[in-house]
Nucleic acid binder design. Structure first.
Lengths: 350, 350
DNA sequence: ACAAGGCCTGGGAGCGCTTTCAATCGAGGA
DNA sequence: TCCTCGATTGAAAGCGCTCCCAGGCCTTGT
């Protein structure tokens, strides 16, 4: 009925509520005997401190919020495209939170809307989260960052586009990853390598293109405009752009798509015109999405440490909330990516 | 600094905090003039009521929790398989919550562990959520249901395995879906239809097999044991079981896999032995996962209303929390599935 | 032996809100 | 005209916990 309160435990253990509070928070200055007695009473009663009361009275709320863009999310829903990135973010953070006794709150933010300011301010005022994990495009949203700073709420930007100076971040090096993948294709012997750019709203799209361009230029390879094509991260766009490239008089011997969905589109396009992958044309993707392993041939791709990023972010925030202070030096964690070599890339036909 | 409280608003509007409270909660018995004045003051101050204080003082917490199995989640993470089901669940619920001013909390539960009872009890005591959305296998966990009832926390079981009498549920008819898909194959002319069963931990696995068996028996078609094979919902298991079936002296002309990952495995197996889909062998899946559209041929499959189920669940819980009472009659929402006809099924070769 | 600490413990004051209940103001009815 | 009832308002009492601070005790030092 009425749930067990700290008073019940105090009464049963024959101590004051303050002592119970100390024990529950693992504070020092409690005799082991007392601690045992309180723990026993709490155990028998099945007591668990009320979160609301804790956060109202104290300075912590034991809540970590994740800001996610509403529009992208709804897109995913309607198109039934997998929200793979988002789930990985959540898994990493959820596990860390659970172990630490924190709770993960998923919040949709309408970054494009006219109400962002009010929406985010209300959220912070109502929730008073101990920390916020910002996923793109929140990671780069000026209004969000400003409000977070104003509310003195710690946050970590996951995979942000813009560089330092904007607060703590945990990210990976998209430029280097794209460069390495391009280098890999070049080392296989490819000279004519096409590229499909991703949805421009994502900062990663440009970074990946830059990495590709860097690698090509470093080796002095030509990059005609027709080989760098604009996609939007969908299978369909990959299919279309690949077809367009295949129709070129001088077509590439390899295509690097900046995500797996588009790479799968390339595979389909190549098969459609009767060519073989990787025999005639190699294809590389980016993301290591689940479907990259279910395609034939399996996709060579880049594995992003998505879950690890959010996991690190959550750990940072929880630690900060526990110690009560900001970290000594600016947080800037660069997590390693990995090239996954599978069957879709091979030396060019000679 | 110190955030805006109800006192500040009351002072600015020249009313008592009680009146502010009434306005913020849309309670009746406030003159329009007062309401306006309070709203104006709140707007200027950027006031937003503190959630913790609200739930501590009142009877609602404005929090809806989603219980998710920890083991399955970690599986998904490690295997990098898409947590597609989970993300769809979340999207549906998150959108509803946001519109209603509620917040979604994701909680991992270790259903297999020895601590379930304590873990869940602690969660409920600490959070006092206004409602809980149970995803499989939580939907059928006796301990969880018992504790929820004891704590008088409203809940909705999403896609539970066991039937009524265990509390409100929102689900789809897996048996009918599997039966209809089987009927579809039969109507194309197939007589020898193989089936790959899913991971037995999921109740849906049995339901789908039952649907398949019903359809086969209704038409008097033979179902040799070798045609009903145990998989575990992974691509690999689909590949292996399909290969085994193809090696049979009398092999099926169609394979119905009880999820898309396994169906993709079938596609791979068929291609591997040099046969064509659907020319030689038809393949049907179940889930309408993102990858079902990226395969070649695209997969004929069943679309589950996952996001819709959680969306309905969230709506029910929020409504209940608002009205303060249990619904008049037991909740049992059956949502419609849909057969998605794509290219992987065709009449058998003659 | 006496004072100066350190270790435990409890008392009391809120945190920002909802709730209960009493008080006030008018309008309608006898 | 006086009384009753409903619509409005506010005052006060917590919700269950943390935080600040004082008090008691037992160590040390000299």
């Amino acid at each position: 009925m009425g749930s067990v309160t700290i008073y019940d435990v105090a009464a049963k253990a024959g101590v004051s509520i303050k002592t119970v509070s100390r024990v529950m928070n693992n504070e020092p200055n409690v005799r082991p005997v007392m601690r045992e007695r309180v723990l026993a009473a709490a155990g028998e009663l099945g007591y668990s401190p009320n979160l609301s009361a804790r956060s109202l009275a104290g300075s912590r709320s034991f809540v970590i919020a994740v800001f996610v863009d509403a529009a992208l999310t709804i897109d995913h829903w309607q198109s039934e495209r997998g929200a793979d990135y988002l789930s990985r973010i959540q898994l990493g953070a959820t596990l860390v939170c659970r172990d630490a006794g924190y709770h993960l709150l998923i919040e949709l933010i309408d970054h494009e809307g006219p109400q962002v300011r009010q929406e985010v301010a209300a959220l912070l005022a109502a929730l008073k989260p101990d920390g916020v994990i910002l996923t793109p495009p929140s990671s780069d949203n000026a209004v969000v960052l400003e409000l977070l700073d104003k509310a003195r709420t710690p946050y970590v930007r996951v995979g942000p586009e813009r560089a330092e100076g904007l607060g703590p971040r945990v990210h990976m090096d998209d430029v280097a990853a794209a460069r390495e993948m391009t280098d890999h294709l070049i080392s296989l012997g490819h000279q004519r390598i096409g590229f499909i750019v991703g949805e421009p709203r994502y900062g990663a799209s440009q970074a990946r293109r830059d990495g590709y361009l860097e690698a090509m230029r470093a080796k002095g390879l030509p990059v005609p405009e027709a080989w760098v094509r604009q996609g939007d991260f969908t299978f369909q766009s990959g299919l279309e752009q690949a077809k367009a490239m295949l129709a070129l008089p001088e077509r590439p011997t390899a295509i690097f798509a900046s995500n797996d969905d588009m790479a799968l589109g390339c595979l389909a396009a190549i098969a459609e015109v009767g060519l073989m992958t990787p025999g005639d044309i190699s294809v590389a993707g980016f993301d290591d999405s689940p479907s990259s392993r279910f395609s034939r041939p399996q996709l060579t791709t880049v594995r992003q440490p998505v879950a690890e990023m959010s996991s690190v972010a959550a750990k940072l925030l929880i630690e900060q909330s526990r110690s009560g202070g900001a970290p000594e030096r600016p947080v800037d964690e660069l997590l390693p990516f990995a090239l996954i070599h599978r069957a879709s890339t091979a030396p060019p036909p000679r």
